[in-house]
């Protein structure tokens, strides 16, 4: 977390993460160039260059896309999620090198504006087999440009988390365009069932992980009984572990009920940073700490501790014996609600 905007707040973990990305890129590139020199000496430098960066971007996009559901399915993968933006921006830069160099190679020094040429050189828009696959890659690159340029927290703050999130969900549109770009371009040219199988396996991996994660989330989204009542039974006190939360859905919103220091408090589950699930977080130093990027909120009023300004809605709770009841109507962001004191605490 940071009060002011800096380009990147470096720490040891972030440096280790970025070093990993660099190793990833270098190992593949060295292997790819040396492999071509040995196995395909007739390939031109431009072809190897374009393919190297295109494949790297494609592979990294798969890594980017599996991190989200993996972290939903197993909390250990949160360690990969935290700096995912670095991976995403790296992937964009690799894709940009691939795209810009391809346009320079295939469309410049001719009788038409290179960008116009991308769209007008191959006009077989009415044929699947002959479809101008470069157009698909170009459109995907435009989406990646928008995502990369708005990846900083400055844009997150100014666009708001919901708009920002919606913009960044466009990665799935980009992925679909890129899959078609690859299938109708490189795969069609190579005509290799092995490469086709690998692309298909990648697609199935991403799809199945997302479906699994969504299936798991469904149980959370099951609304509580008597949702229209003034008070709704949420859970038993013992259902909540110390310094952790139980997520319930009331009035269509996910709410995290935290147990800490013998007290109970409830806040909206949606972190104002990137929409992380606060209820999967933990009380650290007296603050609810988001599992995605470590944003913190005070449980009793849903406010980030000063000087931070993020706020989430709070909810009223009551205790009937061992049963925790919640009032479904949210209070304004940052409203103080006296925590429920548990007996014997």
């Amino acid at each position: 977390m940071s009060v002011s905007y800096t380009s990147i707040l470096w720490n040891r973990q972030k440096k280790a993460y970025d070093l990993g990305i660099l190793v990833f890129v270098l190992v593949f590139s060295v292997l790819f160039f040396v492999g071509h020199a040995v196995l395909h000496p007739n390939a031109t430098f431009e072809t190897i260059f374009i393919r190297n960066f295109g494949l790297l971007a494609f592979l990294l996009l798969h890594v980017v896309l599996i991190i989200g559901p993996l972290a939903r399915l197993n909390a250990r993968f949160l360690v990969i999620l935290y700096n995912r933006r670095h991976l995403g921006v790296t992937m964009f830069m690799l894709a940009a090198v691939h795209g810009v160099f391809s346009i320079m190679n295939f469309h410049t020094l001719g009788d038409m504006n290179p960008i116009k040429s991308v769209f007008l050189s191959n006009l077989s828009y009415d044929s699947l087999i002959h479809f101008p696959f470069q157009v698909l890659g170009f459109l995907a690159l435009i989406i990646l440009v928008l995502m990369a340029t708005t990846s900083h927290d400055f844009w997150l703050k100014n666009l708001g988390p919901k708009v920002w999130k919606a913009l960044h969900m466009m990665v799935y549109v980009a992925y679909a365009l890129i899959i078609l770009h690859v299938v109708l371009g490189a795969l069609q040219n190579e005509n290799s069932p092995i490469l086709f199988g690998i692309v298909l396996a990648g697609f199935l991996l991403i799809s199945s992980l997302h479906l699994l994660a969504a299936f798991r989330e469904r149980s959370i989204d099951k609304p509580l009984d008597q949702a229209t009542a003034e008070w709704v039974k949420a859970c038993q006190v013992n259902d909540i572990k110390n310094d952790r939360a139980k997520i319930v859905t009331v009035s269509g919103e996910r709410v995290a009920i935290f147990k800490y220091n013998g007290k109970l408090s409830a806040v909206n589950n949606f972190c104002r940073h990137q929409g992380g699930p606060l209820g999967e977080g933990k009380i650290v130093d007296g603050c609810i700490t988001c599992p995605w990027h470590g944003y913190q909120y005070l449980p009793e009023n849903g406010q980030s501790p000063p000087p931070f300004t993020e706020k989430v809605e709070t909810y009223r709770l009551k205790l009937e014996g061992e049963e925790v009841w919640i009032h479904p109507e949210p209070l304004a962001e940052g409203t103080y609600v006296k925590p429920i004191q548990l007996a014997g605490s």
Binding site: V23, F28, H40, L59
Partner: peptide, 18 residues
């Protein structure tokens, strides 16, 4: 990284000759 290396090796092996 292992998956990446494996992919690069497979790609180089099946890539159409120039």
């Amino acid at each position: 990284l292992l998956a990446l290396i494996l992919f690069a090796v497979i790609y180089l092996a099946v890539e159409k000759p120039f």
